[in-house]
Design a protein around this nucleic acid. Structure first.
Length: 614
RNA sequence: GGUCCCAUAGCUCAGCUGGAUAGAGCAUCUCACUUCUAAUGAGACGGUCACAGGUUCGAAUCCUGUUGGGAUCACCA
């Protein structure tokens, strides 16, 4: 039982003793005592004043007296205005620590029998993963771990957007300019190669468009474009040009049609180039420590979506317009009319999502489904959920969309077209290099060999990136400062890792050298730093529960940081191996052991691994 | 115009279901290393919690409105 609940029960009894009235225990407000006041927990009595017909300070005094007399774990009380500060005995905290120290899955909830599917990352197959994906992947992975810790059965899925005009652009450019080059012949990651040709296509297209603008036909067409003030005709006309005039655009569109028709040579090129991308993406995922249970491909599910649309028509959940297009009326969900199928029977974005959702339910029978995407898709998911509700899909009321805020670079907004994206691979490489440089500088202190240093640099660099991004609440738009993200000091992953290195190192050494573990039972006068650590350790289950409930890894990030900080402070003031006596030593070894274990648990929930040396 | 998200120290961010004098990190300035690993610790400096009302014994937190920033409202994904 949680300590606060125990105290509520005790306080409830004390009130009955002092006033002869029964108060609902849950209504008694008990908070952690402010750090600058003496005490562990504080009963806030203002709300009780009316119920008991007494003044807050008098209530605090009377409850305090009763508590001190009857509760053996209460070592002292003090009253400040209406606040009753309670001190719990050192032996109480010592016993609490002993109870969790070797608990295998401390912080994890029992299985709830709820199956949750979570979709994240879900890239296009025409380019490498970039900074936006990094936030998506880290959030998705961490939330999936949190849900598992909270007792859910989790299935991690992706929908891979492997078809469409974008990949066709890469394919056209590759055919025209690559001379048969492959990732192997270029010694370059496959996703980067395909991305190169996507960029090449865009560059060639820009050039073609610019040249056309200077032809008589181009000038005439642009002169007719109506624009608002500050808008450029050429920019506004670009899509129209691509779709109706551009030779390159025509090639790409013909390729898309050939793909849809199942043209064997186009399909073959398509699957070859997608294969390159998958190999590249997988390498990136692997380095990030992320895996998926099941992948869905848009090239499969867009057909399923069409079936869903037709089912919707049968059920009269959707309706057909005169031109043959299929629509959903979502006005009762405060949304608009939403198209489900085009007049020519081809699918739109939402169509494949309908199909994918249904297929997943067939595959897994999940109770809940969580989508992690950028918040620019908030409206899309509202519409998707409303449409699934209209179809009366059984899981329709258990769908969640987590739209995270855009991640901006310090230099400005992140736009792939302007070439200011930070590539995921480059980012990891840069930060790991920084960590390596740091480790080399400290090589004398750590007395480690080169391969150990390289390994820990990898862990440290990745921790820096992951922590930097996950410490911010998901919905908040955040600024990514490349310089600052490399920083290994302050509120960072490496700071926490260092705390772990200390806690783990010292407890492992004590185990190895041997100490009198039983002596700890005599240690009942905890120093403030020790008491704070034990208290903080004990809150892990609540932190996990709430973070999972709110789909918010940043709460765990804060928790881990506070724990690491507390341990650093403790370390500074107290010696473990050369403690004053055997009792103190035994207690501190146990404390260090528990801190190390808890840091490991909480950082694991963020997808961050901890080195034993650094 | 409709809907949604955001606004806290110079900068980047915490602040749980309303509780005491709003907290960290970075930056700036001090101090502490022949270490159980100083990638650390201690201190100083830094605030009209966007603004205005309301609810309450009590509001950064809840409600309403205003302002500012962003997203979205495509037969794009």
């Amino acid at each position: 039982m949680k300590i606060v609940q125990q105290l509520q029960a005790l306080t409830q009894r004390a009130i009955t003793q002092a006033y002869g009235k029964e108060i609902d225990a849950e209504k008694i407000v008990i908070n952690a005592t402010r750090s600058d006041m003496d005490g562990d927990f504080t009963v806030v009595t203002f709300a009780l004043a009316k119920l008991l017909g007494d003044r807050p300070d008098a209530i605090a005094a009377k409850i305090g007296e009763a508590l001190e007399a009857s509760a053996e774990d209460v070592s002292g009380v003090s009253v400040v205005k209406g606040f009753l500060n309670i001190n719990l005995a050192g032996s109480f905290w010592r016993k609490q620590l002993e109870a969790i120290k070797d608990e295998d899955q401390f912080g994890y909830a029992a299985k709830k029998g709820i199956k949750t599917a979570i979709e994240f990352s879900s890239p296009n197959t025409n380019k490498p993963l970039h900074l936006g994906h990094v936030r998506n992947i880290l959030l998705g992975w961490s939330i999936s771990k949190l849900l598992e810790a909270a007792g859910h059965d989790v299935v991690r899925v992706q929908i891979i957007n492997d078809r469409g005009i974008a990949i066709c652009k890469s394919m056209v450019a590759w055919q025209k300019f690559a001379n048969g080059a492959t990732p192997a012949s270029l010694s370059r990651k496959g996703d980067l190669v395909v991305g190169d040709y996507y960029v090449r296509f865009e560059a060639e297209f820009q050039e073609e468009y610019r040249a056309w603008q200077n032809t008589p036909a181009g000038k005439a067409a642009l002169a007719d474009v109506k624009v608002k003030e500050g808008e450029e005709p050429a920019k506004k006309y670009k899509n129209t040009y691509f779709n109706t005039i551009s030779p390159l655009g025509k090639e790409a569109k013909e390729m898309l049609l050939a793909w849809e028709a199942g043209d064997p040579s186009v399909r073959e090129l398509w699957s070859t180039m997608n294969g390159w991308v998958y190999a590249g993406h997988n390498a990136t995922y692997e380095r990030m420590g992320v895996t998926f249970d099941k992948l869905y491909y848009e090239s499969d599910t867009y057909l399923l979506g069409k079936a869903m649309a037709l089912k919707g028509l049968e059920k009269e959940a959707f309706y057909k317009k005169e031109d043959g297009s299929v629509w959903a009326d979502l006005t009762d969900a405060k949304l608009d009319q939403k198209i489900i199928l085009r007049a020519d029977g081809t699918s739109v974005y939402i169509t494949q999502d309908l199909g994918t959702a249904h297929q997943r339910f067939e595959d897994f029978g999940m109770d809940r489904m969580i989508y992690v995407t950028g918040d620019e898709q908030n409206y899309h998911f509202q519409a998707l959920f409303a449409a699934l509700a209209k179809l009366q899909e059984p899981y329709a009321d258990q769908l969640y969309h987590l739209g995270y805020g855009m991640i901006d670079l310090t230099t400005g907004k992140m736009k792939s077209r302007e070439g200011t994206v930070v590539d995921a691979d480059d980012l990891m490489e840069q930060v790991v290099a920084e960590a390596r440089a740091n480790a080399e500088e400290r090589a004398e202190i750590t007395e480690s060999d080169a391969s150990t240093r390289a390994e820990s640099a990898e862990q440290v660099g990745l921790a820096a990136i992951k922590y930097y991004i996950l410490r911010v609440g998901p919905k908040k738009r955040m600024v990514f400062n490349p310089k600052e993200s490399v920083e290994l000091q302050g509120t960072t992953g490496p700071y926490i890792q260092y705390s772990y290195v200390r806690a783990f190192g010292v407890s492992a050494r004590a185990e190895k050298e041997g100490y009198d573990a039983a002596a700890g039972g005599a240690y009942n006068e905890l120093a403030p730093a020790e008491r704070d650590l034990v208290k903080h350790l004990l809150t892990l289950p609540e932190v996990i529960e709430q973070a999972a409930e709110e789909l918010d890894p940043s709460q765990v990030a804060s928790y881990a940081y506070a724990l690491a900080k507390g341990y650093h402070r403790f370390w500074h003031d107290h010696s473990v191996l050369s403690a004053e006596n055997e009792a103190a030593k035994a207690f501190r070894v146990g404390l260090s052991h528990a801190v190390a274990k808890t840091l490991r648990t909480s950082m694991d929930l963020l997808g961050i691994s901890l080195p034993e040396r650094m």
